[in-house]
C-alpha cells in the first residue's frame, strides 16, 4: 500500500475528517464572500450594457453559474454516492447527503433567475425552454433524493437507498436532457436561447467565471458545515 492510499483511508473516517472539514470550511467561506463581491462588481459595474437586452441581461452572472453548479453538484453527489455504495465508506454517503440541499438550492436559483430574466426578454415569467425544463426536472430529482433519505429512519438504509437513486438519476440525466431538447424543437421550432453567446465580451465571461468560483467556494463551505452536522448528529465526531 502506498503512502497516498493510506492517507485517503485515514481521512475516510468521520472522526479524522471532522476537524479537516472545519478547516476547509473556514478557508472556503471567506473566499466565497470575496469572490462573490468581485464577481458581482464585474457583473454589475464593469461589464458593458448589452445592445439588445439592456441591463436585464446582468442576471446571467447569477443564473449561468448557478445552472452550472446545479448540474455539477448532482454529478459530484452521485460520485460520492457510488463510492459509498462500492466501498461501504460512511463518510462518502454523508458527503452525498450534505451536497443535495446545496444542489437543489442552485437549481432553484437557476430557475428563479431564469424566469426573472424571461419576463423582460420574452414577456413572460415562464417559457418551456429546453434549458429551463431540464433544470426543473433536475430540481425534481434533487427533491426526490432528499425526500427518500428523509423518509427512511435507518441511516444505513437511507444512505444506500439514496446512493442507488442518485446513480440511477445521473445515468438518466443525459437522456432526459436530450429528450427535452428534442421535445423543445418539436414544439417551438428554434427557440430563444438564454446563452446567445455569439457576441459575449470577454469581461462578461470573466464575471461569470469569478461568480462560478464563488459558488464553488460557497458549496464547499456549506457542504463541510453540513457534513460536520451530520457527523455530530450520528455521534461519530
Amino acid at each position: 500500500m502506498s503512502a497516498r492510499s493510506i492517507h485517503w483511508f485515514w481521512y475516510a473516517s468521520p472522526q479524522t475528517f471532522y476537524p479537516l472539514a472545519g478547516a476547509i470550511g473556514r478557508l472556503a467561506a471567506p473566499a466565497a464572500a470575496v469572490l462573490a463581491l468581485v464577481g458581482l462588481y464585474i457583473g454589475l459595474f464593469v461589464a458593458p450594457t448589452d445592445a439588445q437586452q439592456g441591463e436585464a441581461y446582468r442576471i446571467i452572472f447569477i443564473h449561468v453559474p448557478a445552472a452550472w453548479m446545479s448540474m455539477f453538484l448532482y454529478v459530484v453527489m452521485a460520485f460520492w454516492a457510488a463510492i459509498g455504495l462500492a466501498f461501504n465508506t460512511r463518510l462518502s454517503a454523508m458527503m452525498a447527503r450534505a451536497l443535495a440541499p446545496t444542489g437543489a438550492l442552485f437549481t432553484f436559483i437557476a430557475l428563479w433567475t431564469g424566469s426573472l430574466w424571461g419576463k423582460p426578454t420574452w414577456g413572460t415569467y415562464w417559457v418551456w425552454d429546453a434549458r429551463l425544463t431540464s433544470e426543473l426536472i433536475l430540481l425534481f430529482l434533487y427533491l426526490g433524493f432528499m425526500a427518500l433519505q428523509a423518509s427512511i429512519d435507518d441511516t444505513r438504509r437511507a444512505d444506500r437507498a439514496g446512493a442507488l437513486l442518485a446513480i440511477v438519476g445521473v445515468v438518466n440525466v443525459p437522456i432526459i436532457y436530450y429528450s427535452v431538447q428534442w421535445w423543445n424543437t418539436l414544439h417551438q421550432g428554434a427557440s430563444v436561447s438564454l446563452k446567445s453567446g455569439s457576441s459575449m465580451a470577454p469581461i462578461m465571461l470573466w464575471g461569470m467565471l469569478v461568480m462560478a468560483l464563488a459558488f464553488w467556494m460557497y458549496s464547499i463551505a456549506v457542504a463541510m458545515a453540513r457534513v460536520r452536522c451530520i457527523i455530530r448528529e450520528r455521534g461519530e465526531a
Partner: peptide, 16 residues
C-alpha cells in the same frame, strides 16, 4: 414518494 422518485425519471419515455 414512489411517484416523486419515478415520474421525473420517466420524462424521456413520455416525451418520445
Amino acid at each position: 414518494l414512489l411517484s416523486l422518485l419515478v415520474l421525473p425519471l420517466c420524462v424521456p419515455v413520455l416525451i418520445m
